[in-house]
């Protein structure tokens, strides 16, 4: 019994489905017919909404030309337009020659300034050396003068008292140590 029932039910279901399908198709057509009316209404609403959306367009800072504040652009992020990306190689002879000329000129200048400086230093040293030499010479001549004067004095003394000297000196040495010391220092 049960299978027959089930068969019946299946048939019924099939029928029902077919019915529903037909109904659905009918309804579709009906709905479509019914829906055909509102589109003019929608068309009316659409143009009303459209312009309002366009007005709401959000402008970026770039478009408005607003200057960026308190921002650091990292290196390589903001590349200038129309420029080659990456390294720029120098391979042609002309550009290498120009670089070499610049380098040579700067080097030449450096060497020249170094030489000038060393020459100036040399001149200063030479001047100082000469000055020191002159001072030394002056001191020496002064000393010589004093020596000469002392020698002259010494020579005069024996002229004045040739005979008395031995007699004078002996008592002096005997008298005190101070006079004897002086004589020793100048002898």
């Amino acid at each position: 019994m049960a299978p027959t029932r089930t068969v019946k039910s299946s048939v019924k279901g099939a029928k029902a489905s077919s019915k529903t399908s037909t109904l659905g198709a009918k309804t579709k057509s009906w709905v479509s017919k019914k829906l055909k009316a509102p589109p003019p209404k929608q068309q009316k609403t659409k143009p009303a909404q459209g312009p309002s959306k366009r007005k709401r367009k959000v402008y970026t800072d770039k478009e408005l030309g607003i200057p960026k504040l308190n921002m650091i652009t990292p290196m390589g992020v903001d590349l200038p337009k129309g420029k080659k990306k990456g390294k720029v190689f120098v391979d042609d002879q002309q550009s290498m020659m120009t670089i070499l000329a610049i380098v040579n000129a700067s080097k030449e200048g450096q060497i020249e300034s170094k030489m000038m400086k060393s020459r100036q230093m040399e001149e200063i040293r030479e001047a100082r050396r000469k000055e020191a030499e002159a001072r030394h010479e002056q001191r020496k001549s002064k000393l010589e003068e004093i020596k000469d004067s002392m020698r002259k004095k010494r020579k005069r003394k024996p002229d004045v008292a040739v005979d008395t000297e031995p007699s004078d000196t002996s008592p002096k040495t005997l008298k005190g140590g101070n006079s004897s010391r002086k004589r020793v220092s100048f002898a």
Partner: peptide
């Protein structure tokens, strides 16, 4: 590769 400008300098 060839040298770049600062490298050449």
């Amino acid at each position: 590769r060839p040298l770049t400008e600062p490298e050449t300098q």
